[in-house]
């Protein structure tokens, strides 16, 4: 965020460098149940992001001292593949990944009926195979599908979506260049049914009006992404029913 450059991110017609309108999402593809061994899994392609999420559990939590007597613990691990970015990333969690894993775990826990599974853990693995800005929100969207695929009861199908500011314009779903050279980024996770906000971060420089506009934009887009999630789940489960007939 905020790297200086002469790149013009919004052209004279108000379009972005990838030709999108300010409130337009990048193309998104979703597929549910793509891994054999995991209890639930999903693959999300979002712009240039390629992200797999897998869910294991609920299983007895281990080591034992992490168990909670009255609920399941939710442990998300956000991990970037070394080849997912321009310059090779050293394998293993860096400080950014540790922070993201924490906030993603908390956001996912908010939607899961954890009280149904005391002393267990629900492990969510988010692997970023290729990164193109907005990986945490794409990862949450994938994780949400994987949780549904694993049959874990949830209050809602949580959606990740980001908005931000580039060249003084509030825009939805920043791409790589906009993320690097833009003025602000606001990643969010939203429960589409109740509009509750489960994850909210922000960095950059925005006025109150710009920030609230960005949040509204992301919340609107969450509805569309939610529809795509529902379609992706139907594609898997309706097909399976047909095959059984």
């Amino acid at each position: 965020m905020g790297m200086k450059s002469d790149i013009k991110l919004i052209d004279d017609n108000g379009l972005r460098i990838d030709g999108r309108l300010p409130n337009q999402l990048r193309p998104i593809k979703m597929e549910v149940g793509i891994l054999k061994r995991a209890d639930g899994s999903a693959f999300v392609e979002w712009g240039g992001n390629k992200i797999i999420a897998a869910v294991y559990g609920p299983n007895e939590a281990y080591p034992k001292h992490v168990q909670e007597a009255d609920k399941a613990i939710v442990r998300a691990r956000y991990n970037m593949a070394p080849f997912s970015v321009d310059e090779r990333k050293r394998p293993g969690p860096d400080r950014r990944a540790v922070e993201l894993s924490k906030v993603i775990s908390e956001a996912l826990e908010s939607v899961i009926f954890v009280e149904k599974y005391p002393r267990t853990s629900i492990d969510v693995y988010i692997e970023v195979l290729q990164a193109d800005a907005g990986t945490r929100v794409a990862g949450i969207t994938a994780a949400s599908l994987a949780l549904a695929d694993a049959g874990i009861p949830m209050r809602d199908l949580i959606v990740g979506c980001a908005a931000g500011k580039v060249d003084d314009v509030v825009v939805l779903d920043l791409n790589k260049e906009e993320d690097n050279f833009g003025q602000a980024d606001v990643p969010m996770a939203i429960m589409p049914r109740t509009k509750e906000i489960a994850l909210l971060q922000m960095d950059g420089d925005m006025t109150y009006e710009e920030l609230t506009t960005a949040m509204e934009m992301a919340m609107d887009a969450a509805k569309k992404i939610h529809e795509m999630q529902v379609e992706a789940l139907k594609r898997k489960y309706i097909k399976e029913v047909d095959e059984d007939d």
Binding site: K195, I197, L199, Q201, M202, L211, E216
Partner: peptide
């Protein structure tokens, strides 16, 4: 200047949009 520079939400509860405002 009254601009917002950073936000971080934590813990496993939620906020409504109005609460954030």
């Amino acid at each position: 200047e009254g601009h917002i520079n950073a936000m971080q939400k934590g813990l496993c509860g939620t906020f409504t949009y109005e609460e954030v405002q």
